[in-house]
């Protein structure tokens, strides 16, 4: 039994959401540490010490040669065994924004097709490329989650608002057969949806117009998981809405307060549950 799951939050080389990613795990009962990528590569630290791995957002290596590519390569060549063992041990991994791009470029996502050995084989099958708009943008989107997804990170979450902040978020998977298999296995965990649709009925394969889909992602994909459901990545930033005061509508809604304590309480934002899910999963399963 793990009482307080230990979370490794990667940083270095232009990762820049490491502070808030550490904070959200700490807020839900984890014990997160920012660990420089080189500590794992040089062998000063081992992934083995941790129960959860988070690859935060940022601009690793300036997105040059394709977002996530260079950091992905460092991990793919230097941390192969450690990452394989991590997933084999049933430990969750999340990649957010640039972290998602890293996981896709290393081949951890979407990973081997269902039915095969589900553990990482480090073969890239999909990609994230320039937004159709040609622009980096920071804007809020509405996300809906596949309630049947094996993803351990998204259990019980149906719909949330959060920001996207990327220039290369268009999910591309040219092989339709592979795409259909991912869909059949409910690995297309989270999609951009039209907020005007009913909760639970927003998901569609039909391309949504800009800016409902901010990037022109195939099938409106915002994030996918691997066949084990342990490895999950998404372009939007759930950690950026850990508190209600970060939601752009917060001055429009009736305030929950007044509250004297500084704990989140009623002010918890809808992005936090994802991190609580992983921490609870580790507590229950490891």
């Amino acid at each position: 039994m793990v009482d307080i799951p230990k979370v490794a939050v990667l940083f270095g080389f232009g990762i820049n959401c490491d502070h808030e990613t550490k904070a959200v795990f700490d807020l839900v009962g984890g014990q997160a540490t920012r660990v420089h990528v080189n500590h794992f590569i040089n062998g000063n630290r081992s992934l083995d010490e941790f129960h959860i791995l988070a690859v935060p957002g940022g601009f690793s290596f300036g997105d040059h040669l394709g977002s996530g590519r260079l950091l992905g390569n460092r991990m793919r060549f230097a941390l192969r065994e450690q990452l394989h063992a991590f997933v084999a041990a049933g430990k969750p991994i999340i990649g957010i924004c640039n972290g998602f791009q890293v996981l896709v470029k290393t081949g951890l996502l979407p990973g081997p097709a269902a039915g095969q050995d589900p553990l990482p084989d480090f073969i890239q099958r999909a990609s994230l490329t320039l937004n159709d708009s040609g622009r980096y943008e920071d804007r809020w989107v509405t996300l809906e989650f596949d309630s049947n997804s094996p993803c351990i990170w998204t259990k019980g979450i149906t719909r949330i608002d959060c920001p996207v902040r990327h220039g290369e978020g268009k999910f591309v998977l040219p092989d339709n057969t592979d795409f259909d298999m991912l869909a059949a296995n409910n690995q297309l965990t989270v999609r951009y949806v039209d907020p005007a649709t009913e909760n639970g009925e927003g998901i569609t394969d039909e391309l949504l117009p800009f800016p409902l889909s901010p990037n022109g992602s195939m099938r409106n994909i915002a994030g996918v998981c691997d066949a084990t459901g342990l490895v999950f990545g998404l372009m939007p930033h759930p950690e950026a809405v850990y508190a209600k005061w970060l939601h752009p509508d917060h001055t429009r809604n009736t305030a929950p307060g007044p509250e004297s304590s500084d704990v989140l309480g009623e002010w918890e934002g809808e992005g936090l549950q994802m991190f609580r899910n992983a921490v609870d999963y580790v507590k229950a399963n490891l």
């Binding site: 820049n16 959401c17 502070h19 808030e20 904070a23 959200v24 957002g57 622009r135 980096y136 943008e137 920071d138 804007r139 920001p163 902040r165 930033h237 950690e239 950026a240 809405v241 850990y242 970060l246």
Partner: peptide, 10 residues
């Protein structure tokens, strides 16, 4: 909108 105005979640 092309500036990231909310990294650091603050």
């Amino acid at each position: 909108r092309q500036y990231d105005h909310e990294v650091i979640a603050q």
